[in-house]
Design a protein around this nucleic acid. Structure first.
Length: 503
RNA sequence: CGGGGUGUAGCGCAGCCUGGCUAGCGCAUCUGGUUUGGGACCAGAGGGUCGUAGGUUCGAAUCCUAUCACCCCGACCA
């Protein structure tokens, strides 16, 4: 066979960033809006996010958290209270300075009603939530506070990309308060585990759990944990973070309480979040040159039935058969829910329908025509392997749960194999430079991969990292604890980290 | 904010340098027909203040001036 025609152009190898855009377009997930840097999330993309939300929300509740909602606006003075935090976010804040519009005399409008104190559109809510918690906490009996909110936030980024980095994005942010450092630390770790569990078992994206170095920490945190995933261009994507905030915010905002001994103590806080960026991670981990590939557990539609017919009489017969088959499939449980089955009965050529659903990543496609009905069979296509075959109807109905499970597992193991194949241990500057060298003259596909390296000091390696556009992703929680030798300076060190190019 | 670029039909573009008939092409859309187990073919149709404002000219998508918007590279980043 010659070069096969792909549904997405360019291919991943030809131009990865452009391929990513085209997958989103082909799957009809989202599009750019009239507002710079902000996206419109379309129904198919939003349905994926809703599935993510549903699963995560249950996980949060199962670990003792409740949902609440805090304001979109934060008084500017709140942000000023935690020095590191201000510094981290000041450069990317949307600021509301007026509360009214009036005619400008030239047929247009102009802002009026200057606010006494500017309001910041939340880039994250530590400050407004902390200020609220300060009022709620009096006694050790009020602790812990375990709250999550689903919200939108705004960060005025210079360059945006659909799902990966947009000016406004959707996320959840958990904010908790604890009486002791140990308890807050345990919460921080627990929520990282929840994220890792979700991303690996639902999104089928393998991750590395680790701790951020001081230079990569969340502004105002004592410790930041993250999960890092490898995309198909071998770049790293931070998929979730969990922060141990120590007493920094409680001191800045007076979150204090009387402990069992009657002493006044500052509380210990945490925060943790994942965003619509996860949709980007999903796309870049599994999709291929024919478009989106969705893991069954998160696919809005897990199975699509495509009727094939020539005339109205056949149409009626085939549709009848599809409806009955749908009922049998949809009655079964997969991943604690009824299987999501749709019949695509649109007045569109069947070949077009097939490609439509391939590009949208539907895990299982079932094509039904008169010939299949005669054999009491169905023509079944799997999106993960792109293989299709005729199956007896009984076998299909009886084996559908196993098939969905197999697809889910296959996606994960494929991604894990990819990650492992591109993770290496490097011991010298020469090896390091070689590893992160661009693959071609245009500098395309420059991912390199994950490099495990011993290093002695963040400051000492910074120059090299800037030069190669590499960052320290994390110090893996399971990193070796012994003594090593810094790959750059040769100094002895106890720290091994993962270095990678990143999004 | 620095350096480059682009604005022409829903989308993608040509035309501009060297001004000239009714502003074109591909995809998409609609109609009719032929097709129909695989991303169809033929014929036809609809759809444009050529980013905006001003200027030069008998005549401007094309030349000049101003302005707006967007894109790419850099600093920032879930």
């Amino acid at each position: 066979m010659g070069a096969a025609k792909t549904a997405i152009s360019p291919t991943r190898v030809e131009d990865y960033p452009e391929w990513y855009q085209q997958v989103i377009k082909g799957a009809d997930l989202a599009e750019n809006s009239a507002v710079r840097g902000c996206m419109v999330i379309k129904p198919w993309g939003y349905a994926i996010w809703e599935n993510m939300q549903r699963v995560l929300d249950q996980m949060f509740k199962d670990t003792g958290h409740q949902n609440a909602y805090f304001p979109l606006f934060i008084p500017m003075s709140f942000l000023e209270k935690e020095a590191q935090h201000v510094e981290g976010f000041a450069k990317e804040c949307a600021v509301v300075t007026h509360h009214r519009l009036e005619p400008d005399g030239k047929g247009g409008l102009r802002p009026a009603g200057l606010l006494e104190e500017p309001l910041i559109v939340r880039p994250t809510s530590e400050t407004i939530i902390g200020a609220t918690y300060a009022k709620w906490v009096q006694s050790y009996r009020d602790l812990p506070i375990l709250i999550n909110q689903w919200a939108n936030v705004v960060r005025w980024e210079m360059r945006t990309r659909l799902f990966l980095r947009t000016t406004e994005f959707l996320w959840q942010e958990g904010h908790t308060v604890h009486a002791t450092s140990e308890e807050a630390m345990e919460e921080t770790r627990k929520m990282l585990d929840v994220y890792a569990d979700f991303v690996e078992n639902y999104m089928a994206v393998p991750v590395i759990k680790g701790e951020k170095t001081a230079g990569e920490r969340f502004p105002g945190a004592d410790m930041t944990l993250s999960i890092e995933a490898m995309m198909q261009d071998r770049k790293a994507l931070q998929a979730g973070t969990s922060h141990f905030l120590g007493q920094n915010f409680s001191k800045a905002q007076e979150i204090k309480f009387q402990d069992k001994n009657g002493e006044i103590a500052y509380a210990w806080t945490t925060s943790w979040g994942v965003s619509t960026r996860l949709v980007g991670a999903l796309i870049m981990t599994h999709s291929d040159d024919d478009g989106l590939v969705l893991p069954p557990r998160l696919a809005p539609s897990q199975i699509v039935l495509i009727p094939i017919y020539r005339d109205e009489a056949q149409h009626a017969e085939v549709l009848e058969y599809c409806k009955a088959l749908k009922q049998e499939l949809a009655a079964q449980m997969y991943s604690e829910q009824k299987i999501r089955v749709d019949i695509d009965d649109r007045d569109v050529r069947s070949a077009d329908k097939k490609w439509y659903h391939i590009k949208r990543g539907v895990p299982v496609r079932i094509e039904i025509g008169p010939k299949d009905i005669a054999k009491n069979a169905a023509f079944v296509g799997r999106r993960d392997t792109n293989q299709s075959q005729s199956m007896p109807r009984d076998e299909l109905v009886g084996g559908i749960v196993a098939m969905l499970t197999e697809i889910q597992n296959n996606l994960f193991s494929r991604a894990l194999a990819m990650q492992k194949a591109n993770t290496v241990e490097l011991k010298s500057e020469a090896e390091f430079r070689e590893f992160f060298q661009p693959d071609d003259e245009q500098g395309q596909s420059t991912g390199g991969g994950f490099a495990k390296c011993w290093f002695a000091s963040e400051a000492e390696v910074q120059g090299l990292l800037d030069e190669l556009k590499v960052t320290i992703r994390c110090i893996p929680l399971d990193a070796p604890s012994g003594e090593g030798v810094c790959f750059l300076t040769g100094k002895p060190t106890a720290t091994q980290a993962i270095f990678a190019k990143s999004y």
